[in-house]
């Protein structure tokens, strides 16, 4: 167990390095000159060669690629992501720190939706397979997987906020502002997890251990919850580990539809303004989130499964 954790931790080092390299490389492949962009954004009236050179020096753009990468990486490790081109008074870290909590509240609320809805629905769909409930849910799952998030978001705004006038259309505020965007982010995941839990349960129901549990005369309810559900959730752990960073990254579209001031909105604004340090930091952060959630949930899965956790035969 300890060995496994150490191995997994070590394996993240090259992974993180490649992510940072790719991230740096792609930003550098963008054709426009960052120095020029910086000047434009600062609304310098006449952009001269001299001015560009000066800004290049100022931003460290005159150094060779690998040197710049190493410098950038080193400062990233110290959590220094530079200053925003658009707004030199602000550090990138400060910007992300300002927007992250709002995104996390959105993602967290979405996760809550996913867990609260998909667990019981997936469970009941499997237990009452082919009943009217299961049929309806299969239809719902099918339609929602086919609909893109921004479109669902717009539909919800139109119906719930405009037609029924129940919730605010957009913006940041209390719980009532959170309900619609969080549901929009959650929707595809709810469908995915309903299907995952339902199929896992149906698969587990065919296992010999269920037959033997019946042969032992256990109550059907116990068999379903203690045995089948537990085994089904076991194989969902890694999927959830991947879904959490996906939820955080996936807010990007919904934040823009609902004018939610999170990092997704920050990133889109940065892309429009060619604010490279912000984009870089955003992409890097999402990459790191994926690596760490994946690592954490893999270890969790490992710890939750006696077959992995404990070796063979002691008796």
């Amino acid at each position: 167990m300890k060995r496994y954790i150490i191995m997994r931790l070590l394996a993240t080092v090259p992974l993180l390095l490649s992510i940072s390299l790719l991230c740096f490389l792609f930003i550098n492949l963008i054709p426009s000159d960052p120095a020029e962009v910086a000047l434009r954004i600062r609304q310098t009236p006449i952009i001269t060669e001299d001015a560009i050179l000066q800004v290049r020096q100022e931003l460290g753009l005159d150094q060779p690629f690998l040197v710049r990468y190493a410098q950038w990486l080193w400062s990233c490790i110290q959590l220094d992501f530079g200053v925003s081109y658009t707004n030199p008074a602000r550090t990138v870290l400060g910007e992300i720190g300002r927007c992250l909590p709002t995104t996390l509240s959105l993602a967290g609320f979405s996760l809550l939706y996913v867990l609260i809805l998909s667990l019981p629905i997936g469970f009941l769909s499997a237990v009452y397979k082919d009943s009217w409930f299961d049929r309806i849910m299969r239809g719902v799952v099918f339609t929602t997987t086919a609909m893109p998030a921004y479109w669902v978001g717009l539909l919800l705004i139109w119906f719930v906020s405009i037609k029924l006038d129940l919730l605010p259309t957009s913006g940041y505020g209390g719980l009532e502002h959170l309900l619609l965007p969080a549901f929009t982010v959650a929707l595809t995941y709810i469908s995915t997890y309903i299907r995952l839990i339902r199929n896992n349960m149906l698969e587990n129901m065919r296992e010999d251990y269920v037959l033997y549990a019946q042969a032992r005369g256990l109550k059907q309810r116990n068999i379903l919850v203690r045995h089948i559900l537990k085994n089904s959730l076991q194989s969902c752990i890694t999927a959830i580990g991947m879904s959490i960073p996906q939820l955080i990254a996936g807010t990007i579209v919904v934040e823009n539809v609902f004018a939610w001031p999170g990092i997704g909105k920050l990133c889109i604004t940065a892309i429009f303004n060619r604010d490279y340090p912000v984009i870089q930091a955003y992409v890097l952060m999402i990459g790191v989130l994926f690596v760490f959630f994946n690592l954490f949930f893999d270890i969790l899965q490992y710890a939750a499964d006696p077959r992995l956790r404990q070796g063979k035969s002691h008796a």
């Binding site: 251990y209 549990a213 045995h227 085994n231 076991q234 499964d305 006696p306 077959r307």
Partner: peptide
Amino acid sequence: MSCFDPLYR
């Protein structure tokens, strides 16, 4: 070998 639930002692 497959008749017991792998998650319980």
